[in-house]
Amino acid sequence: ITIHVNGVTYHFDNPEEAEKFAQKMAKTYQLKMEIHNGEFHME
């Protein structure tokens, strides 16, 4: 699972971890999250 946050790329093997991380980042930084081709993009 690949997550892009403001141009920084994070890779996770565990989908649950990826989702937790994505939600935490979105909440902490008030980010808008989109999913493209199974990759999370946040800005």
Rank of each mutant, 00 (worst) to 15 (best):
6 N>M: 15
11 H>F: 10
5 V>S: 01
30 Q>C: 15
27 K>G: 07
9 T>L: 09
26 A>Q: 10
9 T>F: 06
29 Y>M: 03
9 T>M: 10
16 E>A: 09
7 G>F: 13
25 M>D: 02
41 H>W: 14
24 K>T: 12
21 F>V: 01
33 M>V: 14
6 N>V: 13
22 A>M: 09
4 H>R: 06
9 T>Y: 05
22 A>K: 04
27 K>S: 12
8 V>F: 12
25 M>T: 02
1 I>W: 11
35 I>P: 02
17 E>G: 04
7 G>A: 07
5 V>F: 11
17 E>N: 07
5 V>C: 12
13 D>N: 10
43 E>Y: 15
36 H>F: 11
34 E>W: 13
9 T>W: 05
19 E>P: 00
42 M>D: 02
38 G>N: 06
36 H>W: 10
12 F>P: 00
13 D>F: 09
7 G>H: 08
6 N>L: 15
26 A>C: 15
4 H>D: 02
28 T>Y: 15
20 K>L: 10
42 M>E: 03
9 T>K: 14
8 V>S: 10
34 E>R: 04
28 T>I: 14
36 H>T: 07
30 Q>W: 05
41 H>S: 05
9 T>C: 15
15 P>I: 12
17 E>I: 08
19 E>S: 08
35 I>M: 08
13 D>A: 09
14 N>S: 09
3 I>S: 01
5 V>I: 10
7 G>P: 00
13 D>I: 12
13 D>K: 10
14 N>L: 09
34 E>M: 09
40 F>A: 04
18 A>C: 13
42 M>R: 04
27 K>A: 14
15 P>M: 13
28 T>V: 10
23 Q>D: 13
17 E>R: 08
10 Y>G: 00
23 Q>W: 09
2 T>Y: 12
40 F>D: 02
29 Y>L: 06
37 N>Y: 09
30 Q>K: 08
36 H>E: 06
14 N>M: 07
35 I>W: 09
10 Y>L: 04
21 F>G: 00
5 V>Y: 06
13 D>Y: 12
19 E>R: 12
24 K>G: 05
27 K>N: 11
24 K>A: 11
30 Q>E: 12
5 V>K: 00
31 L>T: 04
33 M>Q: 02
36 H>V: 13
5 V>G: 01
14 N>T: 10
11 H>G: 03
26 A>Y: 12
30 Q>G: 14
10 Y>F: 11
31 L>Y: 11
40 F>G: 03
22 A>P: 00
25 M>F: 04
3 I>W: 02
4 H>V: 06
22 A>I: 14
42 M>S: 03
17 E>D: 09
33 M>D: 03
24 K>V: 12
38 G>D: 04
33 M>F: 12
13 D>G: 09
9 T>E: 06
21 F>D: 00
41 H>A: 03
35 I>G: 05
11 H>Q: 07
37 N>T: 04
13 D>Q: 09
5 V>D: 01
30 Q>D: 12
18 A>V: 03
17 E>M: 09
41 H>K: 03
19 E>K: 10
12 F>T: 00
12 F>L: 01
31 L>F: 08
5 V>Q: 01
38 G>C: 14
43 E>K: 13
2 T>D: 07
6 N>E: 10
36 H>R: 13
36 H>C: 12
30 Q>T: 03
32 K>W: 14
23 Q>V: 11
23 Q>T: 11
41 H>I: 09
42 M>A: 05
21 F>K: 00
1 I>H: 04
23 Q>I: 11
14 N>K: 09
20 K>R: 11
39 E>R: 02
24 K>R: 09
33 M>H: 01
6 N>H: 12
26 A>S: 09
26 A>L: 12
22 A>N: 01
2 T>M: 07
26 A>D: 13
35 I>V: 08
27 K>Q: 14
38 G>R: 02
2 T>I: 12
36 H>Y: 12
38 G>P: 02
27 K>I: 14
3 I>H: 01
14 N>I: 12
39 E>A: 05
42 M>I: 07
28 T>P: 02
22 A>E: 02
6 N>A: 11
29 Y>V: 04
42 M>H: 03
23 Q>G: 02
43 E>M: 15
43 E>D: 07
37 N>G: 09
10 Y>W: 08
5 V>N: 01
12 F>V: 00
17 E>P: 01
25 M>R: 00
11 H>W: 11
14 N>Y: 06
36 H>Q: 07
20 K>G: 04
14 N>W: 07
3 I>M: 03
32 K>T: 14
43 E>G: 10
7 G>K: 07
29 Y>P: 10
43 E>A: 11
18 A>T: 01
17 E>H: 06
15 P>E: 08
27 K>V: 13
35 I>N: 04
40 F>H: 04
21 F>W: 10
15 P>V: 12
31 L>H: 08
5 V>R: 01
21 F>H: 01
35 I>L: 09
1 I>Y: 09
8 V>C: 15
39 E>Y: 05
6 N>K: 12
35 I>T: 04
23 Q>R: 10
16 E>D: 12
27 K>M: 11
5 V>L: 06
32 K>C: 15
12 F>N: 00
15 P>C: 15
7 G>Q: 06
30 Q>N: 12
1 I>P: 03
21 F>Q: 00
43 E>L: 14
43 E>S: 13
33 M>W: 13
25 M>G: 00
33 M>R: 00
23 Q>N: 09
28 T>S: 05
9 T>Q: 12
10 Y>E: 00
8 V>N: 10
13 D>S: 10
40 F>L: 14
36 H>M: 07
37 N>R: 03
43 E>P: 05
16 E>H: 10
26 A>V: 06
37 N>C: 15
3 I>C: 05
14 N>Q: 07
4 H>Y: 11
13 D>P: 10
24 K>H: 15
22 A>V: 13
31 L>R: 00
3 I>G: 02
31 L>I: 09
35 I>R: 01
7 G>S: 07
32 K>Y: 14
28 T>E: 15
14 N>P: 00
31 L>Q: 05
41 H>Q: 04
16 E>Q: 09
24 K>W: 15
19 E>M: 14
2 T>Q: 07
3 I>L: 05
33 M>C: 15
10 Y>S: 00
18 A>Y: 02
